[in-house]
Simulated assay, not measured.
Amino acid sequence: QETWQYEDELGNRLGQKVTALDRVGIYVPGGLASYPSSVLMNAIPAKVAGVKEVIMVVPAPKGVLNPLVLAAAHLAKVDRVFTIGGAQAVAALAYGTETIPAVDKITGPGNKYVAAAKRAVFGQVGIDMIAGPSEVLVYAEGEAQDCADWLAMDLLSQAEHDRIAQAIFVTTSEKQLEEVAIEIEKALAELPKADIARDSLKNRGALILVKDREEGMAVINRVAPEHLELSVDNPDALLDSIRHAGAIFMGRHTPEAIGDYCAGPNHVLPTSGTARFSSPLGVYDFQKKSSIIYCSETGSKPLAQTADILAQHEDLEAHARSARYRYQS
């Protein structure tokens, strides 16, 4: 976004000055889950926004750091990298230490301790969101082009993330529901992270049969999923009915896995139902806006009269007099 101004017929000007943040900190997982893609998804929009300095923190268990994470940091032009993780890394970014500079905003995913730390320091610094476990909701209607093994693997692509990840399948077809359940079991027999995926499905997974499309849309909006796949012939026909979702993957050739890496939009998305009121991470998250207000001598008079009246009713006499001087002079 860019700075803009508007001038009315009396010469008053209103607008917004858009300014990039000075310094941001990005948290990148580096323990059980090490994701170079998370570096790109956080650092690139920060740099596009014009942030002067991007600081990255990443845990290095036993002194080992994923070389792909460092390569991604180099490509995304991260300014400084510190090998520290967990809640203490968030605290260091928020308050600063002798070696780690304090930042203006912290973004990026982490475990429950990182999420709790971000919640605790909010106010001292800005944060992107309180991210929970990864989620996907796949919706289908048993159409001829559907492939049960594709749908099953799309669900498992989230389930393998974490034992408390959420994978939900919603369909209007009982036959399709049964076919997908069978394909899930087949895939679990040979997936490397089958144990994690199986626990995830047991803990938070669901296969839901709905009576019609309308009920399916109601379930989607109730869940407000992080990732929503519309595996139907005409996904555009459903778009107006969807009010709450972090990212919407349109059609059966658009798996969520593409969105994780290279589709274009950010993969840092609202989770745990927060898509009801929040948005994906973007360039706008690394900018702030200042209101611009200019009143001409002529244009200030009617505004000052209005302000005078309101201030009197709020029993703020200095406010009233300050405004009054502008139209009685």
Rank of each mutant, 00 (worst) to 15 (best):
M129C: 06
C147I: 14
E143P: 05
A167N: 07
E143Q: 10
D149M: 11
C147G: 07
A167H: 01
G142P: 03
Q145V: 14
L177N: 00
H161L: 05
E174M: 12
S134G: 13
I168H: 01
D146R: 04
E141M: 09
Q145C: 03
R163L: 05
Q145S: 15
D146V: 08
T172F: 00
W150T: 07
G126Y: 03
L151P: 00
I127S: 07
L151W: 00
T172I: 12
L137C: 07
G132E: 01
I168K: 00
Y139C: 10
A120E: 12
Q176S: 08
L177C: 12
E135P: 07
Q166I: 13
E160A: 12
E143L: 02
D149P: 02
E135Y: 10
T172V: 13
F169S: 07
E160Q: 09
Y139N: 02
A152H: 04
P133Q: 08
L177R: 01
T172N: 04
A120R: 15
F169R: 06
E178I: 14
L177W: 02
S173V: 05
Q124W: 12
W150G: 01
V138W: 00
A140T: 12
A159E: 02
Y139K: 04
D154L: 09
A148V: 03
A131E: 00
D154A: 10
A148E: 07
E135N: 07
